[in-house]
């Protein structure tokens, strides 16, 4: 066995199963010129990949899909205005995140009147320049929203298998007025829908809390009950923090619960107690 192979075998045994560490901790590299090492490190950084033709350039997506009640009852007490502002701030919050390890995408499905519709197609948050305000009118076709959501989550063209588990957010202030249960079951049992993280907010006293509790599937994030407009803001700020925290973590498919207690009331002074 020649000297070169001896050193290679010692190097290999030292590192066991080929864990690569920084050269500054490498005893086999001691005594080398640090300027030469810095130059090599710089050269490596400048070196471009030879595999660009075979790899997807875009970051892995993390979809956030909001299903929002825009029935007539949302037009009172400032609810729809609060919802519009909260959604706008949530999208801006995602777009401003700089330390994420995934591309946060946002889609919005509204249900009001006779049907549900895709108000905002799924798109990267940083590319959403504005969102047209929601208007409240009509009945509460929540089943139609579940059907839209199921189709979107199961669509492998829209949400590829590279994507992290999506987050579904349902907000409502009333009872569904269509035949919602089959569509709800289909969403919760679909191959990909059952893996999504689901948060829910009940707005006001008339919301169907029981149904929302069936929808929400994170035991650490039960249905949030909003009693006034500013609660809507708090909920969406918690959703923003949860998704951002998850996208910065080392385990991006793990849920981060909604930390509503950590969201200060808007009226609170900035005091440490």
């Amino acid at each position: 066995m020649g000297f070169a192979k001896y050193m290679e075998d010692n190097y290999s045994r030292y590192y066991g199963t080929s864990i690569v560490r920084g050269r500054e901790h490498d005893p086999f590299a001691r005594g080398t010129d640090p300027r030469k090492e810095e130059k090599e490190a710089g050269q490596m950084k400048e070196q471009s990949s030879k595999l660009k033709d075979f790899t997807v350039a875009e970051a892995r997506p993390m979809p956030v899909i909001v299903m929002a009640d825009v029935s007539g009852s949302m037009s009172v007490d400032g609810k729809i205005e609060a919802l519009n502002l909260a959604l706008k701030n949530m999208i801006a919050g995602f777009a401003a995140e700089s330390r994420v390890r995934a591309e946060i995408q946002v889609g919005l499905i509204t249900f009001g009147g006779e049907d549900a519709r895709v108000h905002l197609p799924l798109a990267p948050a940083h590319r959403i320049s504005e969102i047209s305000p929601l208007a409240a009118a009509g009945r509460t076709p929540m089943g139609a929203a579940f059907e839209h959501a199921r189709k979107l989550v199961e669509d492998k063209e829209m949400i590829s298998s590279r994507a992290y588990r999506p987050v579904l957010v349902l907000v409502s202030d009333g009872m569904p007025t269509d035949d919602w249960e089959p569509a709800f079951d289909a969403l919760c049992r679909s191959e990909r829908g059952q893996k999504a993280t689901r948060f829910a907010m009940a707005i006001g006293a008339d919301a169907d809390v029981g149904m929302l509790e069936r929808f929400a599937n994170d035991p650490e994030s039960p249905v949030f009950k909003a009693h006034e407009a500013r609660d809507i803001h708090r909920f969406f700020r918690a959703v923003t923090m949860s998704v951002a925290a998850r996208s910065q973590s080392t385990a991006l498919n793990n849920n981060v619960p909604l930390m509503l207690a950590e969201i200060p009331e808007d009226d609170d002074l900035d005091l440490d107690f």
Binding site: K45, Q47, S49, L51, E58, R101, A102, E103, T250
Partner: peptide
């Protein structure tokens, strides 16, 4: 073998996908 391993390590270190983690 040795330079081939280094070449592979270099390619993994400069992986072209954005925000790869």
């Amino acid at each position: 073998r040795r330079r081939g391993k280094r070449w592979l390590e270099q390619q993994l270190a400069v992986w072209p996908t954005a925000m790869h983690a």
